Amino acid sequence: MPRSERSPLLLAGLLATAGITHFAAPRQYDETIPRALPGTPRAWTYASGAAELALAAGLALPRTRRVAALATAAFFVGVFPANVQMAVDWRHRPAPLKTAALARLPLQVPLVLWARGVARNAEGRS
């Protein structure tokens, strides 16, 4: 399988894994939901998990890959406030946890760029 074909499947696998964990261990995600959002944190946790699973499915299928990749890039931008909330809330936790929370913030940039690259490659193959 060419590298360009693996990249969207790896991204789909990352999203699918994250989506599943939103349902298997929701409490850790509930704590990252910004309090300013309406509704319950659990509803947002489940909604974001379902979105990740849908995006993963879209990335896995060549026919829907371009649109799913663009939606994935937007999703990664959209969940950034939850990562900021986590960094703020975890600032007094032990150093390894605080470091992990802070490391998530710049990680969004390569994820967005990865999703955009998948979209560009899908456009070139249509």
Results as ranks from 00 to 15, higher is better:
A56Q: 08
A18H: 15
L53H: 01
T40L: 13
P2D: 14
L10C: 10
L11H: 10
L111H: 09
P106C: 01
P2M: 05
A119M: 11
L107F: 15
F76D: 01
R66T: 09
A73P: 12
T72G: 04
L10W: 14
P34R: 11
L14Q: 10
I20Q: 13
L14Y: 15
P34I: 08
A73H: 01
P2V: 10
A60N: 05
V112T: 06
A36S: 11
A54F: 02
V109Y: 11
P8I: 08
L9C: 12
A25E: 13
A71M: 02
A74W: 06
G78P: 09
G78V: 06
G13D: 08
G49C: 03
R91K: 08
L107A: 14
F76W: 08
F75E: 07
F75T: 02
R93E: 07
M86L: 14
I20P: 14
A50T: 12
A43H: 05
T64I: 05
Q108N: 12
Q108L: 10
T21A: 10
A25D: 11
P62I: 08
P26W: 02
R93Q: 05
H92D: 01
N83A: 07
G49K: 03
Q28I: 09
A69D: 03
Q108Y: 12
L9F: 03
P2C: 14
T72A: 11
A69L: 07
V84E: 10
A60T: 10
A47I: 01
T99E: 06
G58F: 07
T64A: 02
A119G: 04
G78S: 07
W44V: 02
A12V: 05
L105D: 03
L97R: 03
H22K: 04
E52T: 01
N121Q: 15
T64M: 02
G58Y: 00
R116F: 13
V79S: 05
L61I: 13
W44Q: 07
L37V: 00
L37P: 00
A57L: 07
F80C: 10
L105K: 02
R42N: 04
R42P: 03
L97N: 00
F23V: 14
A103G: 08
R66P: 06
D30I: 02
E123L: 12
D30Q: 03
E123S: 15
A95L: 14
A68E: 09
W114F: 12
A56K: 05
A50P: 09
R65Y: 00
L59G: 03
D89T: 12
P106E: 03
A71V: 10
R42E: 00
T72F: 03
L14D: 12
G49L: 07
R91Y: 13
T40G: 09
A18W: 12
W114K: 04
A82N: 06
L59M: 09
G13M: 05
K98Y: 13
T99R: 14
P106H: 01
R125Q: 09
G39D: 06
G124I: 13
I20D: 15
E52M: 10
L10M: 13
D30Y: 09
R104G: 07
F23A: 15
R66F: 01
V77M: 04
L102F: 13
N83L: 00
L113Q: 14
P41Y: 05
L10G: 09
L102K: 05
R3E: 12
A16V: 04
H92V: 00
R35L: 04
A51N: 11
D89H: 11
A47L: 09
R6F: 04
R42F: 06
V112F: 01
